[in-house]
Each structure stands twice: as C-alpha cells, then as structure tokens.
Design a protein around this nucleic acid. Structure first.
Length: 938
RNA sequence: GGGCCUGUAGCUCAGUUGGUUAGAGCAUGCGCUUGAUAAGCGCAGGGUCACUGGUUCGAGCCCAGUCAGGCCCA
C-alpha cells in the first residue's frame, strides 16, 4: 500500500503575493493608485506639525531625457526625503527645473536661423516646457514622490522677478561693476559666441618671430647676480600678428630654463633671450645660427617684472611669469594681449594691466591701436601690414606661413577673434571671506572632503561674470543714459521686477526703449540692451525664490544634494548669492555624489563614443524602477558610481531574494489571527489576504518565544538600529547590505528554514507555531517599512497584502524594542557548532552514507556551555536534525552515521517513535497527535 | 599642468586607535531537496589589499613616489 499522503494536513504557506515581480507592468499600476489617492499630499498632511526637513532640489536643465546620472541624483534625493519622512519628519519635496541658458537657445537657433530675440525666446520657452513635462514623467516613473504639479521653474515670471530683486540687492550693496572681458566674437554675425557655437577649420596664417628689446626695469634680475648682456631682446612668436598692437606683456614659465644667446643670420647679429628648449626650433624656422656659448642661463622666474620695448609702439611690455607657457612651439616667451585671449586676460587682470582691445564689432582695428595706417582695417587683412611694420622697425626676426586649425563662427563661417566686450561682474572679493567662513563653520559636508574642495574653488575663483550676450535668459537690468553711461539703480530694478512678475520677462524685448523707460519712470532717451543674466544666478538664487517664499519650505534648507561638479557650480553660486543677500549659507548639509562610470571605471560620456544605453527609461522599462532604485541604494555614492548590465543581473538576484523573503513571511502568516477576530476568521476562509495590524488584545494566549524566535527578534532590533542609523547618516548602501544580509542569511537560510517544521507540521494553533508567526509578523512589518524608501513599489505592494487601507509610505520606521542580546550570543555559539555539523554531514553525504540531512544521526562533541543551557529539542530544531546526541568534550567535533530511526511520513524527520503507534505506525509522536486532533471527534 | 578624490575576491561593499590565518552577500563549482519550486538548503574554491619604496617588532590601515580612473580648473 502506498504511503498515505499527509500533505493536506500541513499548514503550507499561502499567499497571493506573486513570486514574479513583473515590475515594468506592476509599477505603473501602483503609480496610478498613488496618484489617485494623492499619496504625497497625504504624507504631508500626516506630518503636519512635525519637525521640518527641507531637501532643496537643485534644478536639472530642462533639456533631453533623464539618463542614469540624473536618475541617480533624483533617486538619492528621494531616498533622503522618504527616509527622513519615515524617521518622523515632515520632508516636503518641491522639484524644480533650470530653464534658461545656452544649450536650449543653441538648439532652437540651430533649427531656424535669423529669428528675432523675442521669437527665439518664445521657442526656447516652449522647448523648456516640453522637456519639463518629459522629465517630470520620467522622474515620477522612478517612484520619486514630490509636489510634481507645482514645481519651480526658473522661467516662471515670479521666479524671474526674484532673480531681478536679488540683482537689485547686489547693486545696492555695490557688488556689481562693469568691466571688459574678451569673448569669442563673430565678426560676421557681430555677436558673442559660446564655445558650443564654435567650429574649427584649417587655415593658413602668417606666424612671426618678433623681438622686444629689453629696456629699464630690473636689468640684473638674476638671483645668481648675472647681468643680462646689453642689447638683449626677448624673442616672442605669434600666429596672430594683428594682436600685437594690443600687446602689453610677455609671459614666461618660472621654472623653465631661459638662455641669452647671440645669433647670426646673413651677417646680422642678434642677442636674444629665449627658452633653452626652443632654441633649435627657432633656428630651424628663422635660419638664425647660434654663435658661441649662451651668454647667460637662468630660470624664467629670474626675469619676472623686467621690461621690454614694444616692437613698433612707444610703449613697454612687462615680463610676467605664468603657468600656461608651453615648450611645444614658439620661444617660451609668450606675447600677451589681455584683450584678445583668455589666458592673456586672466594674467592681465591679475597684474592690473589694462584690457586693451582696439577692434570694433566688425573686426576692424580702431585708432586705439595707435597705428593710424591700420585704423579701419579688418584684422585678418592687417596681418601683412603688421609684418611690414615690424620689418620697418627692425624687430622682425622671421615670418612664415603657418597652417593650423582655427575657430570659425558656425553661422557666418567667418574666423573668430577674441575681443573685449563690456561685461558686468560681481565682486567676489567682497564675499569671499564670509563665504569661506560659512563653508568651514556653518555647513556639514558629506563626504567631508567636500569642504576642502569647495573652499579651494572659492579661494581661487575670479570675479563672477554675470552678463551674457544671449537672448534666452532674464534680461540684465542695466539701462544706458542718452550719453551711453550705464545706469545701475536698485529702485528701477525692483520696479522692473514687479513688471516682470506681472507680465513676464519678455516685456523687456517687447517694449521699445521709450515705452520701457516710461513704464519705469526713467528719463526719455534712456536705452536698454539685450544682454541677459548668467543662468548660474538663476539657479543660484533659488534659496530665495523657492525656499524662502514657498509656504512649506524654509530658508536655509537642510540639505542640497548634487553631483560633485556642483562644488564649483550650484553649491558655489548659491553660497555666493546667499552670502550677498543674507550673509549666511543657504544650506546646512551639502551632500555630493560621484558620476556614473562604466564597469571599467571609465567615464560614460554623453556625447562621446559610448554606445550602450544610458537612458534611465531603458532600464526602467527592462527591469523596473525598483531595480534602478536598488542600484542607486547599493553603491557608495560618495565615490564614482559603477554601472553595468552585470550589476543589474546581480541586483536582480538580490531583489528576488528580498521579494521571496517577503513572500514566504506572508505565506506563513496566512492564518495568523490578528486584528478583530472576525476579520481574521473571514480572511482566513475567503482568501490568504489578511490583516497584520498589531492588536495585542486579539492574542488570547501569551506567546512563549523559543530561542530562535528571541534570537531573530534580537537580530531584527539590531537591523532596525543599524538601518535607522544608516538612513540618518544618508549611508544608503549600508541599508542595502544590512537588509540583504538579513533576508538572505538570518531569515532565509536560518530562521525561515529552521521554523519550517513547526510552521508546516505543528498543529495550526500550537504555541510554538503562533510564536513564530508573531515574530514573523513583526519582522514582515518592520522589513517592509525599512525597505520602503529603497524598494518604493515592492514594499508598498507587499504591505498591501497585509493591510487594507494605507500605503507603507505613510508609516514611520519601526523602533527598536531593546530585547537584550542573550539569545544573539547563544545563537552565535550555536552557529559555530552548526558549521561543524554541516561539514560532517557534507562528508557523510559524499561518502553516500546519507542523502538528506534528516537521515543523519549526529553525535556532537561540544566544548560549549550553550549545549547545556539549551534544551535538546530546541537544538535539534536549530540544527534541523532528526537525531542528535550531545557529548560534552574539550574539543568541538561531530560524527555522522545513518540514523536507525524510521522516517515520519508527515514531517519527514526520522524519529524514535515512528513505527510504535498502532493507529499511525508511519508517524512520529508529534504528527500523530496533530493528525488525531484534526480528525477530531466524529 | 594644477586642485579635490578614488583604487580590498568576477560584482557590490565591510575591515574600529597599525596587532592572529583580510570578512560578508551575490556570482561560480559540487551536492541535497522538490512541502518558499521560474523557489529553498548545505559544502567548497576564489584575494601579492593597484604598484614601488619607507617608518615600525608588526602595515590593507601611517609616509613618499609611481600607475590607473573620476570631477573641477588651466
């Protein structure tokens, strides 16, 4: 006769919570539910009156799809917001977008040329709004909760007005000044260009070697006391002879060796100062020959501040040391025209040189150049004249054609020049000391080295150029008197702000000069220009425009959280404007994360050759948002953030392990009577969906926890404590590891495995079984809540199988119960013994002595006290064994033989009692009891 | 070229003030189970702690340099 099948007498786990997550399909359903119930609003309402935590969103640029880097940033923010909320705080999240700026304008202008500024602005506006909508959808899809229907946009008239009001304060505090700065200038389009609008073409130019005879200054600058020989000239080299009229200095490298050497060519001798390394190249290019040994040799630092005569103007050029001098080409002495180059400009400013740029909008030299014959000449046509001028003055050492790649205007296809343009600046020196003070004293930097980094950039940053010759931005509120003098007036700017708040900043472009002047009460004849404010001001004043004015927020914010490039970007612009406006930092904590890098640690370039998918949408569609969130939580974001398909495969394993752990807990709780008894009863009969709300009164019998129960609850306490601490410290990857470990080791391979016997085989209402269920219920509810910030969808889904009314996101994190750690210490001992037994059983298996571990008779030689303290039944349960004998001994060891006991047909354990019953010879004592009771009185 | 940072098993991370044989999870291999089953359990293998030198009785940890990578600047 076949063995009776006892399967239907077991309490096998039951749940509708699916094993297969199918996140890409399930998540949108949950999102819909959240949206319909107004989850974000419910959470805010539930937290009314609680301590406030403001994470202020750094606005992403409204341009393009959300890629993994942006997704990482938003998810990290969401982890902060969700975890702070569950720590009991009110953590509103108002997302924002940065809408003005070149990237959008560039795209718009490239599509259709020759638009008026107003038309450009209208199209940019539409473009930005389109991408705000696209990104909003994508962020929401990631499970990020926030006030998505009321984000802040820097193009909002009210926001724009705040930018202008901040500007008014800058003006009032005399932080704004006007000066000149060279920019890329298109002579064809008569406009300033951004780097992105520059394209490179090959072209031929005249390169010249020029001598600057040394005059006055320190004639014997050598530290070693060596005099420079008389009649020494400094040799320079340039490919833009037309900039020579604007020359004001010569730069040398302080560390490189320079020599003074006599050269000859066609019987003419020259004594030249030149970098040692470039003598040979100079000779090859000019046909000069060195004569004799160098007359002097010294590092460039030694000729700092000496002076040389300009090759054709009645002026001197000063020698300066600089770090950008290269030894690739030229002479090692670099011609400096502060009005015609970035390096030149910075060096000139640092040394208080004038910023000379004698060129007009069309690229024609002006009389400021000081050479009447050149006035009105297009710079590229003037090169030949300059060469002649040099030759006439006897200061031309050589001229030759030079083929190189040169920047061109993408629109007019004309060669670009560097040219001075009037710009407006903010005096950083006025703000720097307070900014540094705030950095060091008022802000917590996460990671800590952020302090160093931003301090470094603040220490070294030059004045802030805040004007742009662009259309897509907030108008630069500067007016010009009929005489052309700039008018910076805080009162007028505030009036303009009111006008912009009411009618939008397009008003600046829509109204004529006269009408605008009238609106603002400026004298007739006042004019405006179409410059705009640097977009870093836009986002940089969000602490005022958003945090200070939004009724739910607060200024200063508790936290800013951005990628590390923002140490120089938004963190700094926000700090500077906040110091200017409020004399304090706009944030209390600054968190930075690294950039997303490839599996090899290589950067993932957006424009480069990287061909693998990087859109967040790709991964959300393929794996689900919870997997992307799990990824974001699993890494240490303070470093570069690794990213690869393999990681997603691994994360999928982790995810399934966590999901299955939740599932088995739910399955084991299907009949646990909690809540009002009738509800428990009803749910038990109708479905495996049931309530898990704690309700102590429903438990009639006190629950007697066994060792493993006490242990797992002790572990849960540790897990809760560690997770809370990790969330409080914003160390999400610790949460990931803690919970992963807890699910995989403590629960799956230990607690759930160990308690299977009582869960399945004990009588339904047995105290041991109920004890395990009580523990599991507590674990399940705690686990869901601890997971909720990370697995925002899955935790809520699982939660819904245990409750009926509200989302897990309305909960707070579980609290520790301070259960003591006696059980943890005992189990730590038992785990050591377990390993010894495991090895012995494995050996027996390999020897084909046994198959299943339940077939083993184990004799354990224990040197541990714990085996005396714990009841043998509990030890057998813990080790999941049928037949265990303990022998106290000095050393720990285990021997395994095949047990002589018969196998219980119901619980599969080999027990002494099996075969001894008359009614149930195939059952053990425990199972016989259960089966008999189930049959009940007829 | 300068500033700030990073480099521990195939992957993601631990590694306390320097102190036994450097840990965990996942992955891999070999088994067991088929009552969590597109699951579960056990055992095992896997690391010159980027490299070189130094300080020390002793270095993954401290110091110097090199290499590789990232962000920012030039």
């Amino acid at each position: 006769m076949a063995e009776r099948n006892y399967k239907d007498t077991l309490n096998l786990p039951r749940t509708d919570f699916p094993m297969k997550a199918n996140l890409p399909a399930r998540e949108p359903e949950l999102l819909k539910k959240w949206n319909e119930m107004g989850l974000y609003q419910q959470i805010q309402k539930a937290r009314e009156g609680h301590e406030l935590f403001v994470l202020h969103d750094g606005p992403p640029f409204a341009n393009g799809d959300v890629h993994m880097g942006t997704a990482l940033n938003k998810i990290l923010k969401d982890l902060v917001v969700k975890s702070q909320t569950m720590l009991g705080k009110r953590a509103p999240y108002v997302p924002g977008w940065d809408c003005h700026g070149l990237p959008i304008e560039y795209k718009v202008v490239r599509e259709s040329r020759d638009l008026s500024p107003l038309e450009v602005r209208k199209r940019c506006d539409a473009f930005a709004r389109k991408y705000v909508d696209i990104q909003r959808q994508q962020f929401k899809r990631l499970g990020v909760l926030g006030d998505w229907e009321h984000p802040y946009l820097t193009l909002d008239p009210k926001y724009e007005a705040e930018i202008l009001r901040a500007f008014a304060v800058f003006v009032e505090k005399d932080l704004v000044y006007q000066s000149k700065k060279p920019v890329f200038w298109s002579t064809g389009a008569q406009t300033a260009l951004a780097e992105a609008e520059v394209e490179y073409q090959e072209r031929d130019d005249t390169s010249v070697y020029v001598k600057f005879p040394i005059v006055g200054g320190k004639r014997s600058p050598n530290a070693s006391g060596v005099d420079l020989p008389p009649n020494t000239s400094i040799a320079i080299w340039t490919t833009t002879p037309w900039t020579l009229p604007a020359n004001l200095a010569i730069a040398v490298d302080p560390k490189e060796v320079y020599v003074v050497q006599e050269f000859r060519r066609d019987g003419v001798a020259e004594t030249l100062l030149i970098a040692d390394k470039l003598v040979a190249q100079f000779c090859a290019n000019t046909k000069f020959e060195p004569t004799g040994e160098p007359l002097a040799s010294f590092p460039g630092a030694n000729i700092d501040q000496i002076k040389a005569r300009h090759p054709f103007l009645d002026r001197e050029a000063i020698v300066l040391i600089a770090d950008f001098v290269t030894m690739d080409s030229g002479t090692g002495a670099v011609h400096i025209a502060p009005g015609h180059g970035e390096d030149d400009y910075n060096l000139g400013r640092a040394n208080k040189l004038p910023i000379l740029s004698p060129v007009d909008d069309h690229g024609k030299l002006t009389d400021e150049a000081g050479v009447p014959s050149l006035t009105g000449k297009y710079v590229f046509d003037a090169n030949g004249d300059v060469v002649n001028l040099l030759r006439d003055h006897g200061n031309l050492l050589g001229a030759r054609n030079f083929h190189h790649s040169y920047p061109y205007c993408w629109r007019s296809k004309t060669p670009i020049i560097f040219r001075n343009v009037e710009q407006f600046f903010i005096r950083i020196d006025e703000l720097r000391p307070r900014a540094l003070e705030a950095i060091h004293n008022e802000v917590r930097w996460v990671p800590a080295w952020g302090e160093n980094r931003i301090a470094g950039t603040v220490e070294s940053r030059p004045d802030w150029v805040i004007s742009r010759q662009r259309s897509w931005g907030v108008p630069l509120p500067v007016f010009y008197s009929p005489e052309g003098k700039p008018i910076l007036d805080a009162k007028v700017i505030r009036k303009l702000a009111d006008l912009v708040a009411a009618r939008g900043s397009n008003i600046w472009f829509e109204l004529s000069d006269a009408d605008l002047a009238k609106e603002l009460g400026l004298p007739a004849g006042t004019t405006k220009r179409n410059d705009t404010i640097d977009v870093w001001i836009d986002s940089g004043v969000s602490h005022q425009a958003v945090c200070a004015l939004h009724p739910e927020l607060r200024d200063p914010a508790d936290m800013y959280l951005e990628a590390t490039d923002q140490h120089r970007g938004w963190f700094q612009s926000s700090l500077m404007t906040s110091i200017a406006l409020k004399d304090r930092a706009p944030y209390k904590i600054c968190v930075t994360h690294g950039f997303v890098v490839d599996v090899d640690g290589k950067k993932i370039s957006k424009s480069g050759t990287y061909d693998k998918p990087m859109d967040a949408g790709h991964f959300v569609g393929k794996h689900g948002a919870d997997l992307v969130r799990l990824w974001a939580s699993s890494i240490d974001y303070t470093d570069d953030v690794p990213f690869s398909e393999e990681m997603f495969t691994r994360l999928g394993d982790t995810y399934r392990r966590i999901r299955n752990t939740l599932r088995i807990l739910l399955g084991n709780l299907f009949d646990f009577p909690v809540g009002p008894p009738e509800v428990a009863l009803a749910s038990r009969q109708s479905s495996s969906r049931h309530r898990l709300e704690a309700d102590a009164t429903s438990e009639t019998d006190p629950i007697n926890l066994t060792l493993v129960d006490r242990w797992i609850l002790g572990r849960l306490d540790e897990v809760i404590r560690e997770c809370r601490a990790a969330y409080e410290a914003f160390e999400f990857h610790k949460v990931y590891h803690i919970l992963n470990q807890f699910c995989a080791v403590d629960l799956s391979s230990l607690y759930v495995d160990i308690t299977k016997d009582r869960m399945y085989c004990d009588e339904t209402g047995s105290p041991r079984r109920r004890a395990a269920q009580a523990a599991m219920r507590e674990i399940f509810t705690a686990l869901c809540r601890l997971l909720a910030p990370v697995l925002a969808f899955t935790a809520d889904e699982a939660w819904s199988y245990a409750t009926t009314d509200h989302s897990v996101h309305l909960e707070e994190f579980p609290k520790t119960q301070d259960r003591g750690n006696e059980a943890i210490e005992q189990v730590a001992e038992l785990l050591k013994l377990r390993a010894v037994i495991g090895q012995a059983i494995e050996k027996a298996r390999q020897e084909k002595l046994i198959g299943n571990a339940l077939e083993a008779a184990v004799v354990l030689q224990s040197s541990s006290e714990v085996t005396n303290q714990i009841d043998k039944t509990e030890l057998e349960e813990f080790f999941i064994l049928s037949d265990l004998t303990i022998e106290p001994g000095k050393e720990t060891g285990a021997t395994v033989t095949k047990t002589a006991y018969l196998k219980c047909a119901r619980c599969w354990r080999h027990r002494e009692y099996v075969g001894k019953s008359k009614t149930h010879p195939d059952l053990c004592d425990r199972c016989e009891g259960v089966v008999t009771k189930m049959a009940g009185p007829r």
